[in-house]
Design a protein around this nucleic acid. Structure first.
Lengths: 323, 323
DNA sequence: GGCCTTCCGGACATATCCTGTCCTTAATGA
DNA sequence: TCATTAAGGACAGGATATGTCCGGAAGGCC
């Protein structure tokens, strides 16, 4: 610990852990003279780390914000929090964020101490309880997929499809993206000779085949729009399209889209809402939420089964009286 | 850039940015001899950074996972992604995570370059569009609040309450916590001489008063349970309590709790669901989602207004037919 | 204004350490 | 077997880091 560069790391760590330090304290902690502390601070400044020193009786050194981001020194719990945050980030579906999140997650998990991995996995699944209804993804699996995307490595995993049928896949991963709280992997499946989307929460037992591939070009230009498009053609059980007599932004602000769906403006004061879900409960949460807005609506598309289900729940709602 | 410690930082950064590097590449990048690279690697190892070297034709250096987390070197986009992730993390309401997230966020924003702040704010609000229905909090405000909590500093802000009345507050911040996708600040309000919860998304214009306070002891032992308790006594417009003939975990797994609510088991195959919301749309999303599960239920509590609203939507749902 | 505390930085001597240039060894894969 | 790569010892010369001086400047307090 007596080596100079190591001391610089420790100094940086100290400066991040507390708001302000006096030169004397730092000297004691680092086991050197105050003059050397001043020199170390000087060195950090030369490396573009903005250490500001204020003089006077209540003075001291503090790390400010500069033009470049210094290395972040996180403790164990903070690292876990960052990893979990990255997994749940980008769920908005913003284009750039998911990519950056994944590269950050790849960096973090690459150096994450082994003893923290079980803890991360435990936290990830423990969160499933309060976040009911939203599928949890394994942070480790997500990180592995991200690494394979970046390195163009073939990856294998077990996949459970919507029909609950499990199979082993071996694909060329292309991109990870998020839509409405779900992570999706876009990959080319050589066995089926086609592009497929995989929901990451249905992926298990990820193992990279140590084999590189040359990236293919996407059929559609943009992965995100390709994904949304593929939803509308996927065989979901309940597919609904409505025209609601309310502005589009008013509808989308009032409804919680925990599942893929679209709200498109239709004129100034109306919009078309479209979504496809599998379970009755999700279907009704969306339909009832929209109907409760109080506006007039017309049903453009819905199967007989779907309409019957909705009508049935409508009947049952009328018996909703206390006692 | 020719100084030795700076080169060590650069070496670490290189090792984090790519999976594997040969000694020759590193020497070229760093502008030194290969022998010096080997010495630098040696130095990093002495600092507990697990750099593994593999010999042979396809050999090279790579950074593995060791016993301690090395400083994370993030680029601009990754830093933004981490900050956004931390803001959306902990939304599960897990006890420890929110605290760790906040301390990590405080560390990050403390050193975040000024030029990235507007970008972070823009991203934070841009995410509001796809995440419709879930209130967005300003990452900067959250970070400031976190810092004030940690340092026991009095903080002032504008607050808009449920009745849309705005006022300037000046409180002693105690703790930040999350429940169902909402951030709450627990603070003591000296003007009102009582503890209050503030929803962070309704807080604006946060400015720390540079004044320390001595932390008071909480009336209840645990902030989280205190918060849940305060919900049940808050004057929400629609309060509902149901008994559903389904196991508790089955209900909580099917319903999306984007608002505070509780599911308590009542025997083996029944449970009591309780929640309180302000808007009709939220109310119906919850009620309809539960009714759509198909199980029998009885209404233990609901105001006449609430029941009427639900019955009305039930009527309208029956006219749900295509064309 | 005096006085304290804090950061700032020059000068200098000494010892340390760092770098480049050799070299050999060991491991790995084609 | 051979090429390639990491690992590391030896050594000389130059660079640098450290501690111990020193005086200066700036802010807060009595």
């Amino acid at each position: 610990m007596s080596t100079m560069p190591g001391r610089l790391f420790r100094l940086l760590s100290l400066l991040q852990s507390r708001r302000e330090w006096s030169g004397h304290e730092l000297a004691e902690r680092l086991g050197v003279t105050e003059r050397t502390v001043r020199r170390d601070v000087e060195r950090l400044r030369a490396l573009d780390y903005p250490v500001t020193g204020t003089t006077g009786a209540a003075g001291g050194y503090r790390l400010g914000s500069g033009t470049t981001l210094p290395p972040l020194l996180l403790d164990d719990d903070e690292a876990i929090a960052v990893a979990l945050g990255l997994v749940s980030a980008g769920t908005g579906g913003l284009a750039g964020i998911a990519d950056s999140s994944m590269s950050a997650l790849a960096k973090l998990t690459q150096v994450l101490p082994a003893r923290l991995r079980p803890q991360l996995a435990a936290m990830g699944s423990a969160e499933a309880i309060p976040r009911s209804g939203i599928p949890q993804v394994d942070p480790d699996a997500l990180a592995t997929l991200a690494r394979c995307c970046r390195n163009h490595e073939v990856v294998a995993f077990d996949y459970v499809n919507r029909q609950d049928v499990s199979s082993r896949r071996r694909v060329e991963p292309h991109q990870l993206l998020t839509v409405s709280w779900h992570w999706y992997l876009l990959a080319f499946d050589p066995a089926r000779e086609d592009w497929r989307f995989f929901r990451v929460d249905r992926i298990a037992d990820v193992s990279p085949a140590l084999h590189r591939f040359v990236p293919r070009t996407l059929p559609a230009g943009d992965a995100a729009s390709y994904l949304v498009e593929s939803f509308t053609s996927a065989p979901y059980r309940h597919r609904v399209r409505l025209t609601v007599q309310l502005p589009a932004d008013e509808v989308s602000a009032s409804i919680h889209w925990f599942n893929p769906g679209r709200v498109a403006p239709a004129g100034d004061s109306a919009c078309v809402v479209e979504f496809a879900v599998e379970t009755p409960s999700l279907l009704l949460q969306l339909v009832a939420g929209i109907v409760a807005l109080g506006a007039d609506f017309t049903v453009d598309e819905a199967s007989a089964e779907t309409a019957a289900l909705i009508a049935d729940v409508g009947r049952r709602l009328q018996s909703f009286t206390p006692r």
